[in-house]
Write a protein that binds this DNA or RNA. Structure first.
Length: 223
DNA sequence: GCGACAG
DNA sequence: ATCTTGTCGC
């Protein structure tokens, strides 16, 4: 699929931070998202042991049946070690390559990690949102921002506040199961983002990220 | 100075 | 991210 030009990829942490701060003003963190969810994409990245290679996987699901309709993987080099706040530095090159190879233009993309719940309000999901100019959501397995535990019922949530802004939510996707941490990537509001995550979640994590995780993981073994 | 910190 | 046994629940 066609991607937006976002300038040269940063090399250092300082360059990456500057890029995040610059691009964060372009994020649209509101709206109801796609009215008709015909297809949803999930993205995840796995590491190849013993190497500095990462493998990105994109899985497109039918929005109604949640059955996969297209699948793509790509590998990239991870020069720097992981630095909190700079996940994109390691993962985005491979993710970009996988998205370029994608034929389907999905109505929504669910990313593994943070959106605006990020030190500079520009997590990986925001980056992917501007890159594709599509609605994106970030779903993290561990909290990027402090939170109070929501009630055990599926669908209950608590706000994740940074300063005076609600940057994300701790959302219970199954009764009594650890919440996931939802934040807006681009072109959708937090309320709609949580609705979608809940609808995609048959287990703790949405089907999009479960599928992408599995695909990335075994592609990392074969490729 | 030390620990925390999406994956 | 990744390393792993047992355990609880549908």
């Amino acid at each position: 699929m066609h991607l937006q030009p976002l300038g040269p990829p940063p090399t250092t942490l300082d360059e990456a931070a500057a890029q995040q701060e610059k691009l964060s003003s372009l994020v649209v963190a509101s709206g109801s998202g796609p009215s008709d969810l015909r297809t949803v994409a999930g993205i995840d990245v796995a590491q190849r042991e013993g190497t500095d290679d990462v493998v990105a996987a994109v899985v497109v699901l039918d929005g109604r049946t949640l059955r996969p309709v297209e699948t793509r993987t790509a590998t990239g080099r991870a020069d720097h070690p992981y630095e909190p706040g700079f996940l994109a530095l390691r993962e985005l090159p491979a993710v970009t390559a996988a998205l370029e190879a994608l034929d389907t233009v999905p109505d929504l993309i669910v990313c593994d990690g943070a959106g605006v719940a990020h030190p500079r309000r520009f997590g990986l999901a925001c980056h992917v949102g501007l890159l594709t100019d599509l609605p994106t959501i970030g779903v993290a397995k561990t909290p990027p921002v402090p939170f109070d535990m929501p009630k055990p019922a599926r669908g209950s949530w608590t706000p994740q506040v940074d300063g005076d802004e609600e940057v994300g939510r701790a959302l219970r996707t199954q009764h009594g199961v650890q919440p996931v941490f939802v934040s807006v990537g681009h072109r959708i509001g937090l309320e709609a983002a949580c609705d979608h995550v809940l609808r995609l979640a048959r287990h703790r994590l949405p089907e999009t990220t479960r599928r992408a995780d599995r695909l990335a993981r075994d592609a990392a073994l074969r490729v």
